[in-house]
């Protein structure tokens, strides 16, 4: 096989046409991450029932690429806390968060996970951000499925703005 140089009149860029695009690593990586979130549901109360509606056909979280619910934190990158968290549970939640691989995101769904809700008492954690960092909070008691989907969309927008240059905080 012999090497034939291209004729001087042909420039290789023109020849390749639409067969490649230029982009950045961040854009490609974030595109992949945002459209294939793997949620781990930490469901402790009625918000988790609402989450079942979000996953099911009526609202269908798979339209946003996040339908593959995992029950192992090692296989998930999106932790959804749906329900009341007590101080007795707090170390379990903390451990599950620590077992998730980077990058990982957290959605706090509903009034209880976000602020303790109406459980203003000795045993309920007043907001899970006392224990783990949270990316998106959803209001509601329980939130409507649309609010869950809005949270997914907002999280996707947030992932879009992330950059590999900025390292995410590891296990504060």
């Amino acid at each position: 096989m012999t090497f034939k140089p291209l004729p001087a009149s042909v420039t290789p860029e023109i020849d390749l046409g639409d067969s490649f695009v230029t982009t950045t690593v961040d854009a490609v990586v974030n595109w992949g991450r945002r459209n294939s979130l793997w949620p781990f549901p930490f469901g402790t109360a009625c918000c988790a029932i609402e989450f079942m509606g979000v996953v099911s056909s009526m609202f269908d979280i798979s339209r946003f690429g996040a339908e593959l619910v995992r029950f192992s934190p090692r296989q998930a990158d999106l932790l959804i806390i749906a329900g009341t968290v007590t101080y007795k549970q707090a170390p379990v939640l903390r451990r599950i968060y620590e077992q998730m691989c980077e990058p990982r995101w957290v959605i706090s769904a509903g009034a209880c996970a976000t602020s303790g809700g109406f459980y203003d008492c000795y045993c309920t954690v007043p907001g899970i951000d006392e224990i783990i960092p949270v990316d998106i909070y959803i209001a509601g008691c329980p939130p409507r499925p649309e609010a869950f989907l809005e949270a997914i969309v907002q999280l996707q927008n947030k992932i879009d703005r992330e950059s590999m240059k900025e390292q995410r905080t590891v296990g504060v």
Binding site: Y87, K88, A90, P91, D120, C121, Y122, C123, V125, P126
Partner: peptide
């Protein structure tokens, strides 16, 4: 019901009911 690091007894009337104790 309460965790093993809890100090005091929560439903006693002299326990401040919003006093939280971390585990």
């Amino acid at each position: 019901l309460n965790h093993h690091e809890f100090i005091g007894h929560a439903l006693r009337k002299d326990y401040p009911c919003q006093k939280r104790q971390k585990l």
